[in-house]
Nucleic acid binder design. Structure first.
Lengths: 155, 155
DNA sequence: CACAATTCAATTGCACACAACCAAATGGCG
DNA sequence: CGCCATTTGGTTGTGTGCAATTGAATTGTG
């Protein structure tokens, strides 16, 4: 079971390590999603929807393209998500007048108002992690370095 | 942009930090998935399918329940996934004789054979991360600590 | 034995995530 | 102007991820 043998054995030790790091990341991501699910339930938002509202609260109004760039999501994910936010009355979608291909998304009054209810979400989430601010920053930097490396390796 | 101000300001600094850690984790998880997608394409496996095959290669044969415990997946995810693996000819599903409620899953000869083709997957993945073995171990430990904390906070 | 509680897999419904493709609009170019 | 590559959203199809429900089988209790 435990494999802290000697040097870098060629095969299965490597296999196990790979499985563990990737699985840990996968598990952590889903665990985070679970915490967000419970915290955001009152707001009626999923976690990706919350991310979209965050960038809209910050920027006021953005074309779909920009939202996708910010959140690394493509139109196949964003289109139905934005429609759900629209039918929930939280955002408004309108064709741009300068460029008819572009769709501008911005929060409705109800969407803007929701920001107040979402005020203490970050604190609750951060508390759930059991980490202090420096730990969070360090972990974030490691993950960003990892993501850059992975993106570079997947062309 | 950069917010290394003074002490713990009450509001938006906190908000930003939270968003970044969670988003980083989300992004890293998807980036990892992307690398696995390209590496596993030749094998005709998705990443979760690869995880299932890993535990089956290791244990030879397991009931669905045990697979779910190992990978933190429930039957709603595993049932269709296992059916796809079955129709791909990689695994075999059979009702247990001792407990008729239980379904035992094990690799077919083709599934066992696939293990050889998957031999160099871990090395390719580990190389894509751009990390050395100690870094991987450290990151894994941080993620596991984080996951435990998050699980404890979401009952 | 009868009967309630539990266990286990499967199913259903909803919401991402992403590849592949489509259609409309734009912008160059001759 | 006509032609064509590019940009931008949208749609479709496949595959998770998870909550809730169903239904069969097993276990516990009297």
């Amino acid at each position: 079971m435990t494999a802290h043998s000697s040097p870098a054995t060629d095969g299965d030790d490597f296999l196990r390590l790979d499985q563990q790091i990737c699985f840990s990341l996968h598990a952590a991501s889903r665990a985070f999603n679970g915490v967000y699910r419970t915290v955001l339930k009152d707001l009626g938002l999923t976690y990706p929807q919350y991310l979209v509202m965050l960038v809209l609260w910050e920027d006021g109004e953005l074309p779909v393209k920009r939202i996708g760039e910010r959140l690394r999501l493509d139109s196949g994910t964003l289109s139905p998500l934005l429609k759900r936010l629209e039918s929930a009355g939280l955002v408004e979608r309108r064709r741009s007048v300068e460029d008819e291909r572009s769709v501008t998304v911005r929060p409705t009054p109800a969407g803007t108002e929701l920001r107040e209810s979402a005020r203490d979400v970050p604190r609750r989430i951060a508390h759930s992690t059991g980490l202090r601010v420096e730990d969070i920053r360090g972990l974030r930097e490691e993950l960003e370095r990892l993501t850059r490396a992975l993106d570079a390796a997947a062309p």
